[in-house]
């Protein structure tokens, strides 16, 4: 089944982090996933974590311009969640034969490999930022994530001028890059 234009619009909304769209996707899909996970030795918390991870995987796909969904969003989300959860069960040695509703599934192996790489990079960056400590972390987040300019950052963090802030930011950035690239292997 091809994704309808409505579904493509939902994907675009997801890619641009539109909270109304995300709420709609959440409402339409979460309880199916919850039912699946509860039926397969999981808890409510597991359902939430797995569902959100699947949404992130879908978000990553939606972001890349070349992405064309070859099935309905609900089928994709269900397939990803199913795979993620069964993998988790397997890792915990609790694997049992999956109990399914009447949902159809598609193969999502490749997408999940891609997602796992992204997820690993995310974790490395997250750890690196956290181990920087303050004020480095906030300064870099302010500049690179919230895209604040140097003048605003200087006044926010109490530097006497933008040049001092810039100098501090440079030192922080060098440390962050060192921490990040120590773990992030380009080849992989």
């Amino acid at each position: 089944m091809k994704a309808t234009s409505n579904e493509q619009a939902l994907l675009r909304g997801l890619a641009s982090n539109d909270s109304a769209v995300i709420e709609q996707l959440y409402k339409e899909n979460f309880s199916t996933i919850q039912a699946f996970i509860l039926a397969n030795n999981g808890s409510y918390d597991d359902a939430r974590d797995v569902f959100q991870e699947a949404m992130i995987a879908l978000y990553e796909k939606a972001q890349s311009g070349s992405f064309v969904l070859t099935c309905q969003i609900k089928t994709y989300v269900y397939s990803v969640c199913r795979r993620l959860w069964l993998k988790k069960l397997q890792q915990q040695g609790r694997f049992s034969h999956p109990v399914d509703n009447l949902e159809e599934t598609i193969s999502v192996e490749e997408d999940l490999e891609q997602h796992a790489k992204h997820d690993a990079a995310y974790d490395i960056m997250d750890r690196a930022l956290k181990s920087l400590g303050e004020p480095c972390k906030s300064l870099l987040e302010g500049y690179y994530l919230q895209k604040m300019d140097m003048q605003a950052l200087a006044s926010e963090f109490g530097y006497t001028n933008a040049d001092n802030a810039k100098n501090q930011k440079y030192k922080c950035l060098m440390r962050l890059k060192k921490l990040f690239f120590a773990q992030y292997n380009i080849g992989e």
Partner: peptide
């Protein structure tokens, strides 16, 4: 990587 991190974080 920073951009990707930022995007996923906000999602």
């Amino acid at each position: 990587q920073m951009d990707q991190y930022s995007a996923v974080k906000s999602i």
